[in-house]
Design a protein around this nucleic acid. Structure first.
Lengths: 235, 235
DNA sequence: AGGGGTTTGTGAAGAATTGCACAAAGTCTG
DNA sequence: CAGACTTTGTGCAATTCTTCACAAACCCCT
């Protein structure tokens, strides 16, 4: 079944969500002067099992040396390439409430290859305010911004009620990837990628895990079933 | 295989992460005066397929009426009970930088059954400042706070370098559930639950999806494989 | 050059999750 | 009250993800 090299590879979704963590762990190692690392060490730093790390990396091709480990610089470059962070991605943030302002000031984006080049809000009383080094722009500025600055990713930090409207504006302006913090389902064309970060949901899951009788339902009818219990426990 | 009612149920991890979304969708419906809903409608509001919604709800027991749908109030109560949000969960936030302050001000927590009762920071120049209605406390206040206020959930909004230290303090004080925004793996006892929200990771995944040649590796040897490609695409 | 020790890469097994198809159970109409 | 219609709940199949087990590949030492 082996075919030509340079073949296009499909990377499993679950793997893709972990690659950024490996990348950051590698950057951390590099900043401490480490030049080589084993899968055991890197896995420990990233918080996964070494076998999963190796399986994940195998989707990018073989870049380790058996008996030795991985070259930090080389693997970093490979991960950055696979993730597409060999370039800087300009990002626009829509919604300048508390969360939007914090995200605009969040230094983590910059160090990971993302540059917040514009912040916007639909509220005219907020437009014109300064947020860090940026001035809050009106939503009408979006189409031109997307074109001129090459913005491909939008971050949504609006209220839930304003989320769909802001989404439509982003999509109309040509943005095809949206990270939303609004706890609502967004309707977008199939070509647009959406990822949602839901802060309250995360707390809910933790609350569930802390429930002594998690999942017990007081009044109901039969049918017992087997299944799992644990959710996101770290050790 | 049917056993007694009132049996303890194990809820799959994947289901648990969706239950809060259903709960919020239901609350939204209720706020608009809707009293009944079908699985199709609720699934659309939550952004999942109706068959998945029904499968998820089946783990809580049967609470719908065939041919009719679900009673919004009853299902809301069942979900709230399963998730353990029939009570208010006091929460402490550690790390009062930009993100910490935004989280402290985030109204979404309050409406979902969580109450930020304390904010802390290890930096003495920040301790004593006011954040909303709270005063920033020193880390030394943690043990007493946890005991007196019954804090079971800690939110970590520190810098990556301070995350483990803050984690240790939370664990030592008796907190057994931590939501962290620091992009590092935390070491905790096995009894402690950790969930991580990684903002840069989410952007990375989006960047990957926008890569036209996502996942293609330039120089490597053979072995092609079948697999999936898509990651978190919404439609 | 050969042998021992180490660590990667990966088939294959196992577990978990999702999606399908349909019976079961209810409402509504005539 | 029978039959048409609707919508839930679920066994089963398909897919995806994780873990195991081990051969392959490399270094180092003698």
């Amino acid at each position: 079944m082996t075919m030509h090299p340079l073949e296009r590879r499909d990377i499993p979704a679950a793997t893709v969500t972990r690659l950024p963590i490996y990348l950051r762990s590698l950057q951390d190692l590099a900043s401490r002067g480490v030049t080589g690392v084993s899968s055991d060490e890197l896995a420990a730093a990233a918080g996964v099992r070494s076998t999963q790390l190796r399986k994940d990396l195998s989707h990018l091709g073989s870049h380790g040396v058996r008996g030795v480990g991985y070259d930090v610089g080389h693997l970093t470059a490979q991960l950055a390439h696979a993730l597409g962070v060999t370039r800087i991605w300009p990002v626009a943030i829509v919604g300048m409430g508390n969360l939007g302002r914090a995200l605009a000031a969040y230094s983590g984006f910059a160090t990971e290859g993302f540059d917040v080049v514009a912040v916007l809000d639909r509220d005219p009383t907020i437009v014109g305010e300064r947020v860090g080094e940026l001035t809050v722009l009106p939503m009408t500025a979006l189409p031109r911004l997307v074109e001129e600055r090459g913005i491909a990713i939008g971050v949504l930090a609006t209220s839930p009620s304003g989320a769909q409207e802001a989404t439509d504006a982003l999509v109309a302006a040509g943005v095809e990837a949206i990270l939303t913090f609004a706890p609502v389902a967004l309707t977008v064309p199939p070509t647009v990628s959406v990822r949602r970060v839901d802060l309250a949901t995360e707390l809910h899951v933790l609350a569930f895990l802390r429930q002594p009788d998690a999942g017990v339902i007081p009044s109901s009818r039969g049918t017992t079933r087997a299944g799992s219990t644990k959710v996101g426990r770290a050790g």
